[in-house]
Simulated assay, not measured.
Amino acid sequence: MKLRFLGKDSKVGDCPTLYATDRDTYLVQGWKIISDDPRVKLDIPEGQTAVEVPTELFEHLKKDGLPSGEFKRLEDPLMVLTPGGTYVVQGLEVTDPEALSQMSIPHYETVVEVPKAAITALLEEPRGADLQRRAQPAH
Rank of each mutant, 00 (worst) to 15 (best):
D64A: 14
K63L: 09
S101Q: 02
G91I: 15
C15D: 00
K32R: 15
V89D: 03
I105C: 10
P83T: 13
E46W: 04
K63G: 00
K116N: 04
T21W: 02
G91D: 07
P106L: 06
G84P: 02
H107S: 12
A117I: 14
V111S: 05
E46L: 09
Q29A: 11
L3G: 01
V51S: 03
A117D: 09
T95A: 11
L81I: 09
K2L: 07
K41R: 14
L27I: 15
K32A: 13
G65F: 13
D24S: 07
D14L: 10
D36Q: 07
I34K: 14
P16V: 07
P83A: 14
D64L: 04
P83E: 13
P97C: 12
T25C: 14
T21M: 03
S101A: 09
G47P: 04
Y108T: 06
M103F: 06
G91Q: 11
Q102V: 07
L61C: 03
P45Y: 04
V88H: 14
P38M: 07
P38V: 10
G84V: 11
R4M: 03
D14P: 01
L66E: 11
T21C: 06
E70A: 15
T82I: 11
T82R: 12
Y19C: 10
V40N: 07
D22T: 04
G47M: 06
M103L: 10
K2N: 07
S104E: 03
L81R: 13
T86A: 15
P45N: 03
G69I: 15
F71K: 13
V112K: 06
K116L: 02
T25W: 04
K63Q: 02
L61R: 08
K62D: 00
E98C: 02
K2M: 02
L27T: 09
A50L: 13
G65P: 08
